[in-house]
Design a protein around this nucleic acid. Structure first.
Lengths: 295, 295
DNA sequence: CTGAAAGCGCTTACAG
DNA sequence: CTGAAAGCGCTTACAG
């Protein structure tokens, strides 16, 4: 770079022989620039590999970015969402002064209609970005489309729906989590053992999510034991009767050595095992709560 | 806040009836300000709970911050330090344009003299902050003192020395790691079992570090089993003869159910077990490599 | 010991 | 369709 070279918009303006206001218009794709001028400027931008200085941008702009946060209220799972909220607030206290505003929209985890109501409310006000827990599959897909229509970026938290192509996903890697479970359980098993993997998901939607954990577990197992026998079932309710019925059937058929429940509902199976006084079956569950890191 | 209130240095200057240059002098504790003026300004700053705008600061200042990175070269442990370097480079590509410069100082992990040579070199040039792996205890303490003398901030990576009061520590929480091992191993043990925990640290220094992992393991175990019997030994070399000698002694005395080696040198004990064809002892080790997150 | 002024790289009315 | 100018909240010579 020559020492005489101005940087940023000024240099672009100099090269294009226009004012920086015009450069700014092109940079933000605003109307009111002659096609020819626009092209010239665009070429120079490309030529220079121009990267705007975000510090200067933020300093000069009065614009406030508004974020909506769409997560379950904590009425059922006491305190589960405390940690992410703490994290959001901590980030806010760091960046809030640079033009960020937060709005919370808490919905009832058991009520998909309420989820839809809440996300409709979000769009009543201008919003730039959204963090959401997409625990209802179909409704969340609809929501994603609405975000795209409104040019609003969205990020998933806790549950992921890869197909909905969020900007990013904050939460556990369920596939890896399943592999870890497999890794630990390998010491409890032998070749040709029977293993039962149970997904218990109250709404159909998160079943797909839990499936990932099963995949990880299964892949690890099959890499370790060629002839292990893994049966996977998904229950769409946490009703004890149904669970008992299924377990009766499955455990009668074969000698199951290990049961892996892919989420925290493992206690339901624990009760079954206790009631039937089963001695030879090992039980494993998975719970990965959010954690507040000490800083 | 009144709408007429200016913000930042301007407002301070207005209230103190001085120029912003003088405010700046006080803010940076520079010489050449009358004691009275200084006090007045200091009071106003406190009153306003003034927080400088770091965006404006960085934009206005031409100052470049220089960071030194003092970590082992990878000649022995192939690739172990690739991940943190990737992380550093990724952060650099994000922030480098805002005035950050990096210098690497790689030392020989087996040679504490080399570590000292390298850190002497660091101070030959101006430096603002240092990331280091303090794997040599005494030398790292000396280094910390040198940093304090030079008013240079330092951050530890991989190994922590709490007493050296670094700005922060990047790495595994060894105490929690030990608890996790305990948590998993509880299913392999019963009340009154004998457990052996072995720290194998080539240099005395990291022994203290490994101790933390033992603490976590022990605490979890004692919370779970009241009468479990845990023996802990620390070896200062990875010499197989010495290890074998110690293991002979320890395993003769009592019926050991589980051996936990607090780092990756677990393979040394594995060899012993294989050679002696021990069947009833379980072996557990811990390796937590750095990982590159996919983004 | 203190202040006026230019500048960092952008954005934002406003004027033409 | 385009430009001159002020401003964001700081820092940095320079002058006195």
């Amino acid at each position: 770079m020559k020492i005489t070279e101005l940087s940023g918009v000024k240099e672009i303006a100099r090269r294009a022989d226009v004012s920086i206001a015009t450069v700014d218009r092109v940079l933000h794709n605003r109307l009111g620039v002659a096609q020819k001028t626009k092209e010239k400027i665009l070429n120079i931008i490309k030529e220079m590999d121009y990267k705007p200085n975000i510090l200067a941008k933020r300093l000069a702009s009065k614009r406030v970015y508004k974020f909506g946060i769409l997560i379950p209220n904590d009425h059922n799972k006491a305190g589960y969402w405390k940690a992410p909220i703490t994290g959001i607030e901590s980030a806010y206290s760091e960046f809030g002064e640079f033009g960020v505003e937060l709005s919370y929209y808490l919905f009832d985890k058991e009520d998909r209609k309420n989820f839809v109501e809440m996300y409709d409310v979000i769009f009543e006000q201008p919003v730039d970005g959204i963090i959401l827990a997409p625990i209802f599959l179909k409704e969340s897909m609809d929501f994603a489309i609405k975000c795209l229509e409104n040019r609003v970026q969205y990020v998933f938290i806790e549950t992921n729906i890869p197909a909905a192509r969020a900007l990013s996903y904050i939460g556990a890697d369920l596939y890896q989590s399943g592999r870890v479970v497999g890794n630990i359980c390998q010491y409890l098993l032998e070749e040709k053992d029977n293993v039962l993997v149970i997904n218990i998901a109250k709404n159909v939607d998160s079943a797909e999510h839990l499936e990932k954990r099963y995949e990880g577990f299964k892949d690890f197992m099959l890499e370790t034991f060629k002839k292990i026998n893994i049966t996977n079932i998904s229950l769409e309710s946490d009703n004890a009767e149904i669970l008992n019925y299924e377990l009766d059937k499955l455990l009668k058929k074969r000698d199951v050595r290990l049961i892996f429940v892919t989420n925290g509902r493992v206690h339901l199976v624990a009760e079954y095992i206790r009631k039937h006084k089963l001695k030879n079956v090992k039980l494993v569950g998975t719970i990965i709560p959010f954690r507040i890191l000490n800083t």
